[in-house]
Design a protein around this nucleic acid. Structure first.
Lengths: 145, 145
DNA sequence: AATTACTTGAGAATCATTCTCAAAATAATT
DNA sequence: AATTATTTTGAGAATGATTCTCAAGTAATT
């Protein structure tokens, strides 16, 4: 299925850089693919640990960088002073809404916003490289508490 | 003029919390008001130092927090792993474009984006608290280099 | 001027992340 | 399968921004 295909693509990406396919790298990628959340390094570390796989945090960071570089993961920053990572299975571009009470992250996309961003840049002769857009909210559940 | 009025408002804000008006707090606020840039703590520290005023970094952080709390400053995070601060003289809400080459920061506002953000939230019954929106660009000047 | 309460600065602490380097593992070659 | 060359890993140190601690200093009040 799809997951194994992705793992193989990751192996190819590793080899394409003349790097080595290691058990640690595969564990990390698999763990990332099996989890839809937006997790920080520590959460991935603990999740692997609980499943009996010990991989150092340094290796997790290094492997996530590699995954990001090759399009398998996305690194995001919601202003917490630390990075979160999500897999890119079924990738469609999206931004995030973050509940300031419970931390829940919801994705959103809006084509008008995407277009306007491009217009703002071209009006100034700036070349748009990427953007970072988060809405900080109180989610429906937290409002009723 | 306007600057002195703001300084007086800051003094009032300090007193309103039963805190003390100190030379360090005033120096920091004045320095912030006299500079239109989006600066990190260290830049403010160095600028004060160069003008012959030594204030510890801890005090700069503490005072900027106070200024933010009372609406005299805005704290921003453009994903550098550190905060930047701008004054709120002539405050109008805006977001930022950051040149990935030279670091130049340009402000932008777009009412359609502001409205759409609210619509996205209300469609989910989320209450929008604030947002963070940056466009990472190559600015006109950097393109011609 | 005395009292009380808050502020300051120095340096330690914190926290996420990166770096260093020796030991271990992989890949390529025999 | 053994050898070799190269890369990877993990432990812990290093880094860098920011916060914390606490003794000494200062502002406000009486």
């Amino acid at each position: 299925m799809n997951r194994n295909k992705i793992i193989n693509e990751f192996k190819d990406a590793i080899r394409s850089e003349n790097l080595k396919v290691t058990a640690q790298r595969l564990h990390i990628l698999q763990n990332l693919m099996d989890n839809p959340n937006h997790r920080e390094c520590e959460e991935i570390f603990q999740d692997l640990l609980q499943k009996g796989t010990i991989v150092s945090r340094a290796t997790i960071y290094r492997t996530l960088d590699l995954a990001v570089k090759h399009g398998f993961a996305r690194k995001m920053d919601i202003g917490e002073g630390k990075a979160r990572y999500e897999n890119r299975i079924n990738e469609t571009h999206h931004d995030h809404m973050v509940c300031t009470q419970c931390g829940k992250i919801t994705e959103f996309v809006n084509n008008d916003i995407e277009r306007i961003q491009r217009e703002i840049c071209s009006a100034k002769n700036y070349q748009l490289i990427k953007h970072s857009h988060q809405l900080f909210v109180i989610c429906n559940e937290c409002q009723s508490n």
